[in-house]
Every structure is written in structure tokens, then in C-alpha cells.
Design a protein around this nucleic acid. Sequence first.
DNA 1: ATGACTGCAAACCGTTTGCATACTG
DNA 2: CAGTATGCAAACGGTTTGCAGTCAT
Lengths: 138, 138
Amino acid sequence: MVEITKILKERGFKVTPQRLAVFNVLKNTKEHPCAETIYNKLLPMYPTMSLATVYKSLEVFKSIGIIQELDLGEGSSRYDANTKQHPHIHCLSCGRVEDVDNDMIYDLLDNVKARTGYNLIKQQLYFYGYCPDCQKTH
Amino acid sequence: MVEITKILKERGFKVTPQRLAVFNVLKNTKEHPCAETIYNKLLPMYPTMSLATVYKSLEVFKSIGIIQELDLGEGSSRYDANTKQHPHIHCLSCGRVEDVDNDMIYDLLDNVKARTGYNLIKQQLYFYGYCPDCQKTH
DNA sequence: ATGACTGCAAACCGTTTGCATACTG
DNA sequence: CAGTATGCAAACGGTTTGCAGTCAT
């Protein structure tokens, strides 16, 4: 809360209740919500909040580098306050998105770099399947 | 050419010049084109082709499982006649998308399976950076 | 002949933009 | 007070859909 305020000020952005609210939703969830989900969460407490403001806030956070955008091919983006690049796994039944430990991909990154000659900037690693919960009910 | 005809017939789809044309573009390129790119390639030879037909054809091919859709977060999907799941690398400067060898990810898949308990169905592994060509010109 | 396919235009949906008003610093 | 941010509504862009006419079988 204090931190985000400081970062916004340093970068010349104004500190508004809307921005703090959007950031806090992301900071306090592990569900990787999309813009609309964030908006719906905020509506009860911020009845004048608009979806456009959510998008604009997310854009500011992305530009500052304090959130990252995930595109799992669902038609809408999800957002993550964890800016460290890490793989995600998406349940094809219940739709949840979970983090996957990062430490198993370092070899892979080295291999890709060596074989392609690209200097890697980032990666998006998405796995799809059925989570343990959904496997039970099938 | 013969093959696609056979597959379409077997599945009860009609074999039309438009479908064959769309599939051939995909079959004969390595550039992972989007729908609009396919459309533009076909327009000279198929002046009445419509973008909707390209999309509808791609949808048929996806449902049959003879192409796959890639979502690199560019706003539009790309398509690949290689249906084997394999990683891709995307140049942030010139925009090209290249294949990455598949054989280096088996360990990763085993690890993800073991650690998450998911039964993996598919994955989308995208790497982003600057290709050797673009690195030279910087 | 009949039922699926094409191609046009309109609808769709997530996201972005323009602009008048409100608020931060 | 100056200038940025909000929030509404309209625009945008890729994709999908409805439908009349056409074509594959």
C-alpha cells in the first residue's frame, strides 16, 4: 500500500483511490483475474468505478512494471501482481490458473538461447490440463 | 492435397476450392500466418474469397485437428499446419515466429505433471527476444 | 435435389479512445 | 491552480454470426 503510493509518485503518476483499489485486488489474490473480474470485485465498494478506469490503471501498472499481463488464449487477458516470469497452468474444466515453480525452466531457457541464437527477453509458458479436483469428479 | 480431401470427406465436410486453398497456404509456409495474412495471400488467385470464409475454414481444420492455433498475445491468432505441440520463438523486432525443437521439453512436462498433479493435455510455450538478424542491426 | 458452403454485412466482445467533469498535488 | 485522472459513451479491431444465393455430392 505504502509501496505502490511511493512508486506512483516517483514516476509522476497521481495516487488515486481507484488505482490503489485495482492494485490491491491484484496484490491480494492468486486467481489471476481479468479486467472484468477486477471490476466486479470493486463495484460494491467503488460504485462509480468504470471498466475503462480498470483498464487504464492496469496499463499504468504494466508500464511501470509492477504487474504482468497473461494471455492464455481465453479471449481476455489476465493480470498478475507477481512480475517475475513464471509458468502457469490452466485447468480446462474449472478455469483456474495456478503458478508453476520457476526453477525448472532454467535449463530450458539456456537450451533455447543456444539453439536459436535469440537473446531471450521474456517467455510465456502455459500448460493446460485437468486439475486434481476436477479429475476426481470425472 | 489428396490427404486433406480424404480427411474432409471422411468427416462429412465438403471439399471446396476455398478450403483447399486455405489449407495449402498453411501447409506451404513456415511463417505462422494470421487469418488476414492468409486472406491477403489468396486474394489474387481467389478474388471472391472472403475473410469470413478463411475463419470458417480454419475453424473446420481446428475441429478436425489438422492445424493448431497460436496465441502469442499480438491481438490476432496465428495458425500452424504442424499440429504437434512445439515451442515457438517470436522476434520482438521483425515479428517472425519460428519453431523451437520439441525434444528439450519432455523433462519439463514430466516435472510439471509431477509437481502440479494436473494431467497435461497441451501446452503453449512462447519465447520472446531478438533474432540473430535483428541483433546485427542494433 | 438437398443440404452444406460462400460471401456479404451486421453483430459481437474485449479493449481503447475522446471528452467533459472531478480531483490530486 | 494546473494538469492529470475518472467515467461515460462511442470507436476500434479481430472474430463470429445470420442469411440469401451458390455449389458439392
